[in-house]
């Protein structure tokens, strides 16, 4: 009974975190209660992160030998990633907040993609988990590279939207090739076929293609539309986190990720409506520098 205590503590902490996230977001959706909303969500995050170190008590036998190194690495990564982001987040000018959000959102997408990479390289055999992990890898990678391009545009590093003739066809083809690669991984794993290249290589190609598509998709969109684009990628990262939560069998990730996925989608629609545009118009029609589209 006592051996179950750590895993029960994780379950309770994750449940509390999921509740605090929802409660905090709800409070953030009204101007009067908004400032306290982020505090509630912050408490939830601290509780979940602290409890996650209890996973150390139940690691697999092959990871047992590396446990102390891994704990040290985790603390170091938390300090470096968290410290750097906290510093730059509190120092950045208020006018630079949109590009900060883009950068941080890209980091979240990258984290989800990295988790997907570990799961895929470790080998998943259940069909549902494999498909979900591949989808999360694709969406997380697109969110990572797309957010970085959005950050570059807002920060003034990329001045002009890159557009050329037949761009939609090139982007469509790139997306198709990415999907085929992902499908090929799924086919090889499920049917037990040896892939043409070594499996880690195929997985690396899949990630590279996903990242490339994120870049291609974001390059032609004008800087004025970037807030809506960031909102789209925010929803993407949420979705990727939710999907990887399923791969890791972690309900807190599933709930928080899917809440953000849906909330981000809703926010995207609201922001597009406030600009009197449709989301597909923003994403696929190469506008945004001088919006002069006539709605019929």
């Amino acid at each position: 009974m006592l051996a179950l205590l750590p895993s029960m503590a994780i379950v309770v902490a994750d449940l509390a975190a999921a509740f605090l996230f929802l409660f905090g977001l709800k409070r953030m959706s009204s101007p009067v209660t908004a400032p306290s909303g982020i505090a509630y969500a912050g408490i939830g995050m601290v509780v979940a992160v602290l409890a996650s170190f209890l996973y150390a008590l139940s690691v697999g036998p092959e990871a047992q030998a590396h446990l102390w190194v891994n704990i040290g690495l985790a603390l170091l990564a938390l300090a470096i990633g968290g410290g750097l982001a906290w510093r730059s987040g509190s120092k950045a000018a208020l006018t630079a907040m949109p590009q900060m959000v883009a950068l941080l959102n890209g980091a979240g997408g990258g984290a989800a993609a990295a988790i997907a990479a570990i799961v895929l390289l470790g080998g998943v055999s259940a069909p549902a988990a494999l498909v979900v992990t591949l989808a999360g890898a694709l969406i997380g990678s697109i969110s990572l590279s797309g957010s970085l391009i959005a950050w570059g545009k807002l920060d003034g590093l990329l001045k002009q939207p890159l557009r050329f003739k037949g761009q939609q066809i090139v982007n469509g083809a790139a997306f198709l090739v990415t999907l085929i690669t992902g499908g090929y991984i799924g086919f090889c794993v499920l049917s037990g076929t040896e892939p043409l290249l070594a499996m880690p290589t195929v997985i690396a190609i899949f990630f590279a293609l996903s990242l490339l598509f994120g870049v291609l998709m974001t390059l032609p969109i004008g800087g004025a539309d970037m807030p809506v684009v960031i909102s789209v990628y925010n929803a993407f990262t949420g979705l990727a986190v939710g999907l990887e939560g399923y791969s890791l069998q972690n309900p807190a990730l599933m709930i928080a990720g899917m809440v953000v996925g849906a909330a981000g989608l809703m926010l995207t629609l609201l922001m597009a409506r406030a600009m009197n545009r449709s989301v597909s118009n923003i994403l696929f029609t190469n506008f945004g520098v001088a919006p002069k589209h006539k709605h019929s």
């Binding site: 996230f21 979240g108 949420g238 981000g264």
Partner: peptide
């Protein structure tokens, strides 16, 4: 509230760090 909420939901999917810790501890 659109921009603060986008940022707030951006914070909430930071929960992915918990999945990262799980994966790293089991590496």
């Amino acid at each position: 509230l659109h921009t603060p909420l986008m940022s707030g939901s951006n914070f909430v999917h930071g929960i992915v760090v918990v999945g990262g810790i799980f994966a790293l501890l089991n590496a």
